[in-house]
Amino acid sequence: MSKLMFATLFAALSAVLPAFAADLTIDVEGVASADGQVRVAVFNSADTFPVKPVRAVGTPAREGKVRLVVADLPAGDYAFAVYHDVNGNGKLDRNAVGMPTEDYAFSNNAMGKRGAPGFDDARVVLPAGGASVGVNLH
């Protein structure tokens, strides 16, 4: 494969990439402190939500607001769960009676009657051009 062909192919790929690789930008408000990480798990179906994410990313916490970018997702419907991993142990902590003890939220700030909402309530649409959504941990 010549260099020219490679360059042409790359250019062509680049041209179509946005259709397959949209960025989901999540602005997380209500971060209580700068301790630990703010983590998000992204789900692409009702079957997998909120257990098997397609992608998980994190960023150091900062009091107030932090931005997470989940890059290169195929356009489509998603839901996400975000939480403030204050002690940085990589999981949403619960107390001995099972109550979550770290701040958490779902996309659209949706909540179920007891715990997680349904996928439809938390659904965000990610078009090919990407999307920016807000969520509040409080």
Binding site: M99, T101, Y104, M111, K113
Partner: peptide, 9 residues
């Protein structure tokens, strides 16, 4: 009253 979901007790 169920206008907002309950995150914990």
């Amino acid at each position: 009253v169920g206008r907002k979901g309950v995150k914990n007790n």
